[in-house]
């Protein structure tokens, strides 16, 4: 079996509000899959449906070959989950929570647990109510990474981690991948997505707008050009976001129009030219912003 998660035409409505509106998501076994989208796009809702905590209104959802609603318990033996907002039992210590979650998942690797505690610099003897947000997240992360789950579902797992811990987290994910585990990673941290994810899905308003490898997605986007010309700026019908200041011009252009645009510029005469490849930020801004106009 080479798809860990397969979601087709998923709908979820809360009363009259449609949180998910025909979402598709495919996560292949063994990959780290980035799950992105603006606030309120429906990432956590999708994850909660994948965990069988909520029921889909309609659509097909397959998780590790099973139905997450009906076979929740069996499927959970094979996955570990880290919520975005980790709430722990105030009276238990971090170590107790890690052991509890590990045991419930069918045991955890004691030496790996120690190693992870050390790498994440987490004191397991503190009561959960005294942990900071980042430390609570570390508790859930250690419990997840020390388990022998084949699928990790991580919902914004690093939103409270400092940069040092963020890099420990990234190393851990890479190791998990090397061990052949599948990771679904919802995140707003683009550098994290860029360095970890094999493929990403971008969703907006409950719908998948883009899915593929980062290289594929980049291809769909625009190059930013800044040029200083010898004469007045010519007509540039392919340009987006055009800004002219005297003989200086800045604009974006789709890859397939790049050649035409640069030719038109050179007809006037180019004094200086910089071109920036589309950054991940540009890629996301495009999707995230168009949501505003969509609403």
């Amino acid at each position: 079996m080479n798809t860990a998660i397969s979601v087709q035409a998923l709908h979820k409505s809360f009363g009259r509000a449609h949180a998910l509106d025909g979402l598709d998501l495919t996560v292949r076994t063994g990959e780290v899959h980035g799950f992105l989208g603006p606030n309120g796009a429906g990432k956590s809702t999708t994850i909660r449906i994948l965990l069988g905590l909520m029921r889909a209104t309609s659509g097909r959802v397959t998780l590790l070959g099973g139905d997450p609603w009906r076979q929740a318990t069996e499927l959970h033996r094979r996955l570990a989950y880290v919520p975005g907002d980790v709430n722990l039992w105030p009276a238990l210590t971090g170590g107790e929570v890690i052991d509890l979650l590990g045991r419930l998942r069918g045991g955890l690797d004691a030496s790996r647990r120690e190693e992870l505690l050390e790498r994440f610099e987490l004191d397991p003897r503190k009561k959960a109510k005294t942990y900071s947000k980042g430390n609570r997240q570390k508790v859930a992360l250690v419990a997840a990474f020390a388990s022998d789950a084949e699928l990790l579902i991580l919902d914004e797992p690093t939103s409270g981690l400092d940069p040092l811990m963020e890099s420990v987290f990234q190393q851990c994910v890479v190791e998990e991948k090397q061990r052949g585990r599948t990771v679904l990673l919802s995140s707003h941290i683009l550098s994290e997505v860029e360095s970890l994810c094999d493929r990403v899905s971008i969703i907006r308003a409950g719908r998948t707008v883009e899915s593929g490898t980062l290289a594929e997605l980049r291809h769909l986007t625009m190059t930013r050009i800044t040029a200083e010309l010898a004469g007045p700026v010519p007509e540039l019908p392919w340009a987006g976001g055009l800004v002219t200041e005297g003989r200086r011009v800045t604009f974006q252009v789709a890859d397939h129009d790049l050649d035409k645009a640069v030719r038109r510029l050179s007809e006037t005469g180019i004094v200086a030219l910089t071109s920036q490849p589309p950054s991940l930020e540009d890629l996301f801004m495009r999707h995230y912003e168009s949501e505003k106009s969509a609403r």
Partner: peptide, 22 residues
């Protein structure tokens, strides 16, 4: 003030044992 507690637990192994703690 809070004092440090145990670094782990062998007894918390089921939802029932957790419920008992609570």
């Amino acid at each position: 003030p809070q004092r440090p507690g145990p670094a782990g637990s062998a007894r918390l192994r089921s939802p029932l044992s957790l419920a008992w703690r609570l």
